[in-house]
């Protein structure tokens, strides 16, 4: 059984408080079409579970398949450094086909970032270490492609449609979290 290492914590990007009973962690890649589809499912799960659910996201860009994925992840982290992580995250997934630098600049403007700081962050790869640390976490946790979901610390096997994830989460809520 593959488990999440390290557990979801304050260093992660979170929607909802860590004290909530169900933790859903996604390892994702902004250029991966399956991750794009999964966004719709994750939002629907949040609506269904309300304050029961805490959602976390870790980067797992697969650059062999997705050449823009790493810089997109850096852009999301750079937005996070300015308190706008989720706004950028949403924009990137809504525009997976347009992830060149001029596009990233456009999204950064849309979410209201300090553009000089954003450009410097990307130029100097200031958030690469965070992405590498997410990749390491994915490697030792058994990430098997993107997206890979962990529900209360246990890798979700099988499909990631709404019903499958909801069933797994409902079951997981009955037991203590594994990580």
């Amino acid at each position: 059984m593959s488990t999440l290492k390290p557990s979801l914590g304050p260093r992660d990007h979170l929607r909802g408080e860590l004290s909530r009973p169900i933790h859903l962690v996604e390892f994702g890649d902004f250029e991966c079409p399956f991750c794009g589809q999964a966004q719709i499912v994750v939002h629907a799960l949040e609506r269904a579970l309300g304050d029961q659910l805490c959602v976390g996201f870790r980067n797992f860009p697969i650059v062999g398949a997705h050449p823009h994925a790493q810089l997109a992840a850096e852009a999301a982290e750079a937005a996070g450094a300015q308190g706008r992580y989720w706004q950028m995250h949403e924009l990137l997934f809504e525009n997976q086909h347009a992830l060149e630098i001029p596009h990233l600049d456009l999204y950064a403007e849309q979410v209201g970032l300090d553009m000089r700081r954003f450009a410097a962050d990307l130029d100097d790869h200031r958030h690469l270490e965070k992405i590498r640390s997410d990749l390491h976490s994915g490697a030792i946790s058994g990430v098997a492609g993107t997206p890979t979901f962990f529900i209360n610390g246990i890798r979700h096997e099988g499909p990631f449609d709404f019903d499958s994830l909801l069933a797994a989460m409902t079951l997981a809520a009955r037991f203590p979290r594994a990580g």
């Binding site: 797992f60 860009p61 697969i62 650059v63 062999g64 398949a65 990749l135 390491h136 994915g138 490697a139 030792i140 990430v143 098997a144 492609g145 993107t146």
Partner: peptide, 16 residues
């Protein structure tokens, strides 16, 4: 599909 994902992940984390 499964093999492609598996090999792509191993390649991405080759430094590990």
């Amino acid at each position: 599909p499964v093999c492609s994902d598996q090999m792509a992940v191993y390649s991405q984390i080759i430094d590990e």
